[in-house]
Design a protein around this nucleic acid. Structure first.
Lengths: 257, 257
DNA sequence: CGAGTACTTGACCCAGATCAAGCCATGTGG
DNA sequence: CCACATGGCTTGATCTGGGTCAAGTACTCG
């Protein structure tokens, strides 16, 4: 483990003082920016107070004017198709962006609703576009984030068995928990089974049965929304056919070819 | 129908002269750019000679340095998972971009192979990034294209019956043919059944049977790779649950809400 | 403590997969 | 010009992963 990075701690404290309501440091957007550029970014965003579970951040068809960075809590995005069926497109944890799919049409293409109490930063898109012209690192990061989202949703669209999909999903959550500094093998699911099922194109009952089977096989210990990963290698063996984070982690490293 | 735009025709001719090998005008990227900016874009791209069917444009793991705009012909992108199964991620016709998913990791995340004889423009990514800082319209267009790709692949990842998926796929192809100035109801499929099946998470046999049923029901006339759409409204009724182009065409218009 | 919601478990069913021929273009060599 | 191979496509028979339907059970929150 590397030694604690005190310079980092100090600047976080500093930023907390200049912008109490919204430290961007943990978010995906400013990755690779220096403090100066960070400040410019902070100047254009504004924090949006607590969103209660079930409360919507935006709805499909709303005119698009901002991206949202999740600070705390969790959201899901979904659409309702013309038969009235709900499709869960994704889940958004702390540090992740919501709303990228609205850029193209100028209208939000999905609904975003809080699963738990959540706080977000609104990033006005026109100002982000403008700023990203001045700050090359920001432009590059936006493109990376969007590219990653493309990989990830293309992966989700591929054909895999139910257990591969659930295993891949748990691994993805685990990695995202770790990125936020939480214990990677102790997940508290922010969403009900029904939403997991919809996201993975399964029936709620199938998700329930798979959790039971994974537990039986000693892969995980499940109790309601708490999932402990017991046998990571076995879970990875199942789930590595997918790469739900779009980051290539599950593949043999390309540069070693 | 609007009167023909002669100024446009003239400038296409002009550009053909200055850059015989690769007119970007029909490609998706320069939409909304003026002639001056277009020229700057043309200056950084370079044409890449004919790619024969089965020949690869790039492979998974190759280091990423350019996007590719398809000029003529058609490509497919696919991955091979760790079980050796092929997954077709998408098809790319004239005027469409390939390779956006490689930006994030600096390596191509999929394989791209020609389905027919194809010609492409290579757009060196670092120069595109640089140019898009100078030309705001270009930056905006890149973001729109990527956003649209996110919507589209999220849609493909949703759960729909086999006939909804195939209908949605045919409609998507039809629209893309029309955008290229071809007859929208007369499609020549550039890919074999196997690839359509893989892309839509179906078995080849199911695709074949669905074509037979669609024909029986008078929706289409199919003969080998030639598909004529006979009953567009009926096909749309089936396929509009999906929105494989990510452009919201199939939804009740958001601004009328 | 009662009502509602999330979750689980069992029995049965079906859309679409798999297996197995056969068909039909196109190409190739004799 | 014709065997006959080859690969894409179709069609039929059968099978099965996961869906649906139907009870329960267990938290959670007034």
């Amino acid at each position: 483990m590397p030694p604690p990075d005190h310079s980092n701690v100090v600047s976080i404290t500093h930023l907390r003082q200049t912008c109490r309501s919204c430290s961007l440091r943990e978010l995906c957007l400013p990755l690779g920016l220096d403090n100066d550029d960070m400040q410019k970014l902070e100047d254009i965003v504004h924090s949006r107070g607590p969103i209660r579970p079930g409360e919507h951040l935006f709805r499909e068809g709303d005119s698009f004017h901002a991206l949202y960075a999740v600070k705390t809590g969790a959201l899901k995005t979904y659409t309702i198709d013309n038969q009235g069926r709900e499709h869960v497109l994704g889940f958004h944890l702390g540090g992740e962006l919501v709303g990228l799919d609205g850029i193209h049409s100028g209208h939000n293409r999905c609904n975003a609703v809080a699963l738990q109490n959540a706080t977000v930063c609104a990033v006005p898109f026109s100002r982000l576009e403008q700023l990203s012209r001045e700050v090359p690192g920001l432009q590059a990061q936006i493109l990376r984030v969007m590219s990653r989202e493309i990989s990830a949703s293309a992966q989700l669209a591929t054909e895999h068995s139910a257990d591969e999909r659930l295993a891949g999903f748990l691994l993805s959550l685990s990695r995202r928990f770790r990125r936020r500094g939480l214990v990677a093998n102790l997940i508290t699911l922010p969403m009900p089974r029904r939403d997991i099922a919809s996201h993975l194109r399964l029936a709620t009952e199938t998700v329930s049965r798979l959790f039971a089977r994974f537990q039986e096989e000693g892969l995980v210990a499940v109790r309601r929304r708490d999932v402990e990963i017991l046998d990571l290698p076995a879970l990875e063996k199942l789930g590595e056919a997918l790469d739900l984070d779009g980051d290539g982690r599950s593949r043999r490293s390309p540069q070693t070819r």
